[in-house]
């Protein structure tokens, strides 16, 4: 059981990075990481020793994110769409963090299916075959979502 916690803790930084690919801002990414870790600790009986802790925890994260994304859509359906205010810390607002906010905002404009494909491959670094397996889609579907997501990001970010 101690092993389980150590293994989970070891993958948390990677999970948190993936969360930044899914969530709309760094605070939400940390919330998502926290919720994933809590759910993983609670569901530890379901983890099969010998399988990938990262893969298991990432699936938990994706499910949580899908649930919160649905809630978000319902909520936003009732509210006027609003540009997320760009808030950068008063202290330590390094350029890298400004760039991170900027990229996260662009990712937030993608449809969810393109966004998770982009996050799995470009942020988590999964190979196409692994990403397709993780998202439970055929590899051709993965590559087409990835390509459309990247094309959209390029035009959003002015990379032509």
């Amino acid at each position: 059981m101690e092993d389980f916690e150590a293994a989970l803790e070891a993958v948390l930084p990677r999970l948190r990075r993936f969360a930044h690919g899914l969530a709309r801002n760094p605070a939400d990414a940390d919330d998502l990481t926290q919720a994933t870790a809590e759910r993983a600790l609670k569901s530890r009986e379901q983890f099969q020793p010998g399988t990938s802790m990262a893969g298991w925890a990432m699936r938990i994260m994706r499910n949580l994110w899908i649930d919160t994304a649905r809630q978000r859509q319902r909520r936003e359906g009732m509210l006027a769409p609003e540009e997320q205010g760009e808030r950068v810390g008063a202290e330590g607002a390094a350029e890298s963090s400004v760039e991170l906010h900027y990229l996260m905002r662009a990712l937030d404009r993608l449809p969810d299916d393109q966004r998770e494909a982009v996050a799995a491959v470009m942020i988590d670094g999964l190979a196409y075959r692994e990403a397709a397996e993780f998202l439970d889609i055929p590899i051709g579907t993965l590559t087409s979502r990835l390509v459309r997501g990247r094309q959209a990001l390029m035009s959003l970010l002015g990379e032509q």
Partner: peptide
């Protein structure tokens, strides 16, 4: 490269279990 540069370092920051 922009994606890797911006998101990559996040995985170097330690995160404690809840």
């Amino acid at each position: 490269e922009r994606m890797t540069t911006a998101f990559g370092p996040i995985a170097d920051e330690p995160v404690a279990l809840p």
